[in-house]
């Protein structure tokens, strides 16, 4: 199993928003990858973006600058 540590988790309302976010990050060299949304955030299913907490400023800047459709940002041990 992967080592648990503090991570930045970004959630989305839809898979389409997650796909758009992934495409944006890959095109702009932003860090992270898609994972199943952690159950500590929601008991539902879906995808979330996982990155390191230190990547938060760069990702937040992109979300604001290009109005990327995200639900919420969390920092949790995952």
């Amino acid at each position: 199993m992967r080592e648990k540590k503090l991570r930045l988790i970004i959630t989305f309302h839809t898979t389409t928003a997650a796909m758009a976010f992934e495409k944006y990050c890959m095109a702009n060299g932003l860090p992270g990858r898609l994972i199943p949304v952690p159950t500590s955030i929601t008991a539902g299913c879906g995808m979330a973006w996982m990155a390191a907490p230190e990547d938060r400023p760069a990702l937040e800047e992109a979300i604001q600058k290009d109005a990327l459709a995200v639900d919420a940002l969390y920092e949790i041990v995952h």
């Binding site: 989305f12 309302h13 839809t14 898979t15 389409t16 928003a17 929601t42 008991a43 539902g44 299913c45 879906g46 995808m47």
Partner: peptide, 17 residues
């Protein structure tokens, strides 16, 4: 089934889901 918001009793409001 939508793959997201599974514990909601209603269909997600966002397009296209």
């Amino acid at each position: 089934g939508s793959g997201v918001q599974s514990f909601s009793k209603t269909q997600p409001a966002q397009y296209p889901t």
